[in-house]
Each structure stands twice: as C-alpha cells, then as structure tokens.
Design a protein around this nucleic acid. Structure first.
Lengths: 173, 173
DNA sequence: AAGAACATTCACAACATCGTGAAGGGTGTG
DNA sequence: CACACCCTTCACGATGTTGTGAATGTTCTT
C-alpha cells in the first residue's frame, strides 16, 4: 500500500512536469510553472513554501521567487494562519484562470499601444503604416471580444457545475 | 532630403525593435519577431531573404531560420518569381493574425489534452483532480469562444474598412 | 534571553539560447 | 564548363537565464 502512495506520487510529479511544460509555452517561467502545476494537482488547498519545496524536491530558494511571481500575477493568495510563522499560499480557485486571461488583456493593450505609436510615426499613407493599422485594429478587436468571453465564463461555469451536480452519469444532452 | 529618408529609416528600425519586443512577449523568438515586425512596417509587400538581412542589418544566417519559422507558422508565404533565383517572402495580409490566433488555439488544445491526461491519472474525486478538471473546462470554453471570435473578425474588418473608405475625416457616429 | 525553524537574498555554476562568421550546396550566366 | 550569386547549414563565442548553496534576517519556542 505504501507502494501505491509512492506510485501515485510519481505519477503526480510526472504530470506536474508535463503540465508545467505547457504552462511554460504559455509564457510562464519554469519554476512558477512547476509550482502552479503542483499546487493545482496535489490535494491540499493551501501550501507553505516548505510544502512546495519538499513536494517538488527543489530548494526553498527556488520557491521564493516563484511564489512571489505567482502572488503578483494573482494565481496565489498569501495568507497567514494565526500562531504560525510561515506564510500560506492558497490558490484563488474562483477567478484563477480569468485572472490569467485578464493579464493577457493587459499584454494586448501594450500591443495596441506599441503599434499605435508606430502608426503615428510612419503614417497610414504608406503600405507599411496601413498594415500596422490593420494589425492594431485586430488586436483592439480581440481585446474587446476577450472581455466579453471572460464575462460569459461565470455563467458557463455555473452551467457545467449544475450539469455535474444534477446527474453525475448522464452521457447525452 | 536624404536626411529625411535616413531619419525615417532610423525611426522605422526603432519601432521594429519595440514592436519585436512585444511580439517576443507574446511567444515569438527574437529573430522571427524582428523579421515579422520589419516586414509589416516597411513598405514592400514582398521581400527576399537578402532584403530582410540588409534592411535589419543582420546576417543572412539569422534570417534563414527566422523565415523558415515564419513560413511554417503561416505569417509568410514563400513565393518564387519566374526567372529569379531567390525566394520571395510575402506576408499573407488577409488572414495574418487570424492565423496567429489559430496557432494559439492549437496550443489551447494541447493544454486541454495535457490536463485531461492528468485528470485521468489522478481521478476527479480528489481535490487536485477536481481543480484540474475545472481548469480543463475553462480552457475548453476558451477554445470554443475564441473560434467564435475569429469567425466574427472578417465582418468587423469589413465594417472598419467601410467606415474608413466612406468618410475619411469623420470623427463621430 | 538563547536557540531553532523558516523563509529570503545573494553570488555562482550549469545550462540553454542567440546571432555571427565560415564553409557548403544548388542554380542560372558568361 | 567554370563562375558568380544567393541561401542554407554548422560550429563557435557571447549573452541571458535557471536553480543551488551559503549567509542573513525574523519570528516563535524553551
């Protein structure tokens, strides 16, 4: 039975690495990616820095920077249990990925802004300027649409939860 | 007047660097980012590898890998003028950024797939598995919504073009 | 009040990545 | 048929990044 636990542990860590790789492709740094993947996949709902270090088998130093980033971006919320001398990192289940996409929106804004300044300098008369203007328009469009998508998520989320709650084994519509 | 040309050239290259930086944040490698930014911002609608190398002031070797990537992703289309011995790279104006987002969709698919395998291994009964399942659901939702957004773009694009075409100096309404 | 446990910061070594320069193919031209 | 041109590939130096280990500071226990 101890073997079962170990096996699951290994499976979990393997998955964490795989998932972290995907997160890295999405723009996260390696260690934040690992920490986030681990915190999501393991069963606790709050972790100390030490938990994360031991769980992942990495040095506490590596955790420090990772959690700082994850808190800043909004994946983690830093908490403190009274009478404990270590911070607790709990992932903000509710808006977790909405936050992530919101951050992307900011990035989109920078995009639009950067291109806009280029259009100003080059002028829309030239072919290059025209292309840039179209690119900017698309990014702006995307930004608006994404906002709408985010707004629709809570309802969809509730719908999914309701479906799961009402009939667990239903297969079709 | 030669100074004007040089000044514009410098301004263009400065913008290219700035824009390329934003593109890198969006996931592109440095050189592809520069090449794409330059091809968009400069006035030609087709470039040889040599054009890009000279225009950016980098070695032809650096261009080679960049255009290969950009062609693969769909930003560039490789063409060949009869009687010429150099390939021409022309940016596919029409679907340029739609393609880009489409690529992101594929990335989202990998996301969903990676998480899904994790859910299988860990099971949805455990808190970790449940969290993963919710993450997967969000990503899947995002994927569907993004497809819709892309579908809406052509109409919006046409609308913007019509607005610009009909009245150039209109400010409101 | 001294000590222990914990997290953070800093400097460093390992690692990966990037772009250049030189060498190598393939294709028209004289 | 040799040459010139252009692009590609390869190996290397430079640069940036990552994660560890040691040192530091801080907070609770004894």
């Amino acid at each position: 039975m101890a073997d079962d636990g170990d096996g699951e542990r290994i499976a979990l860590l393997r998955f964490v690495e795989r998932f972290a790789l995907t997160l890295r492709e999405a723009g996260l740094a390696p260690m934040p990616a690992r920490v986030l993947a681990y915190a999501l996949a393991d069963d606790a709902d709050r972790y100390t820095a030490g938990d994360l270090a031991r769980g992942l088998g990495v040095s506490p130093a590596a955790i420090s920077g990772a959690v700082r980033y994850l808190v800043q971006v909004g994946f983690f919320v830093r908490e403190r249990e009274p009478g404990t001398r270590s911070d607790l990192y709990v992932l903000d289940d509710q808006d977790l990925w909405s936050r992530f996409v919101s951050a992307e929106l900011t990035s989109l804004d920078r995009f639009v802004q950067a291109i806009d300044s280029g259009v100003e300098v080059l002028g829309v008369e030239r072919p290059g300027g025209r292309r840039l203007a179209e690119t900017r328009d698309f990014m702006a469009f995307l930004r608006v649409e994404m906002t709408g998508v985010l707004a629709r998520w809570p309802a969809e989320r509730a719908r999914l939860a309701a479906d799961r709650g009402e009939v667990t084994s239903r297969r079709s519509g």
